[in-house]
Simulated assay, not measured.
Amino acid sequence: MTPDELRTFCLSFNDAVEEFPFTPETSVFKVAGKLFALTALDRRPLTVNLKCDPEMAVQLRAAHPEIVPGWHMNKRHWNTVTVDAGLPDRHVRELIEDSYDLVVAGLPRAERLRLDRP
């Protein structure tokens, strides 16, 4: 997955936006004002921080050396995924979608319904 593909996929979700609250190099992808992905698209290797169910996070880290505890994030709920280190693009897309879904699940019901994600 290229940086452009990563950006395009993150922005493909309902109400997803890209912001730069930290530095011009750090893309923060949000839904309804809540972060679901954070990356420096011009950095190599390309990595992305993604929200993850705590139990699943531990399993993913054990199964894939490309997935480690979230850099500068709550390590219980966030993973850092090295995108260009051998994980299939399909798997990376699933992890991004899971992160988006977890964030949306924490939104108020009216907001979830607006996003068409009951």
Score class of each variant (00 low, 15 high):
W71H: 14
M56A: 15
L60K: 01
A57N: 07
Q59A: 15
W78M: 06
K75M: 03
P69M: 01
W71F: 15
K75W: 07
A63I: 12
W71D: 10
H72R: 11
M56I: 13
W78R: 02
M56F: 03
I67P: 06
M73V: 03
A85D: 13
M73A: 04
D84R: 11
D84E: 13
P69V: 02
P54L: 09
Q59W: 10
V58D: 05
P54R: 07
H77G: 02
G70P: 01
P54T: 10
A85Q: 14
T80I: 07
P65L: 11
P65T: 13
Q59V: 15
W71C: 07
V81H: 07
R76S: 09
P54N: 09
A57P: 03
R76P: 00
D84Q: 12
A62T: 08
H64Y: 15
P54V: 07
V81S: 09
L60R: 05
D53P: 03
L60I: 09
T82K: 09
I67R: 08
N79T: 01
A62F: 00
W78Q: 01
R61N: 07
V83L: 13
G70K: 03
A62I: 00
M73G: 00
T80S: 12
H64I: 12
V83W: 07
N74M: 08
E66D: 11
I67M: 13
A85C: 11
A63F: 08
H64A: 11
A63C: 12
K75D: 05
I67W: 10
W71V: 09
P69I: 01
E66R: 06
V58R: 09
A63Q: 15
W78N: 03
A63S: 15
W78G: 01
I67V: 15
R76K: 15
A63N: 14
M56T: 14
G70C: 03
L60E: 05
V68A: 06
R61Q: 14
P69S: 05
N79P: 03
E55Q: 13
H77I: 02
V81K: 06
P65A: 14
P54C: 08
P69W: 01
Q59G: 08
A63L: 14
G70F: 03
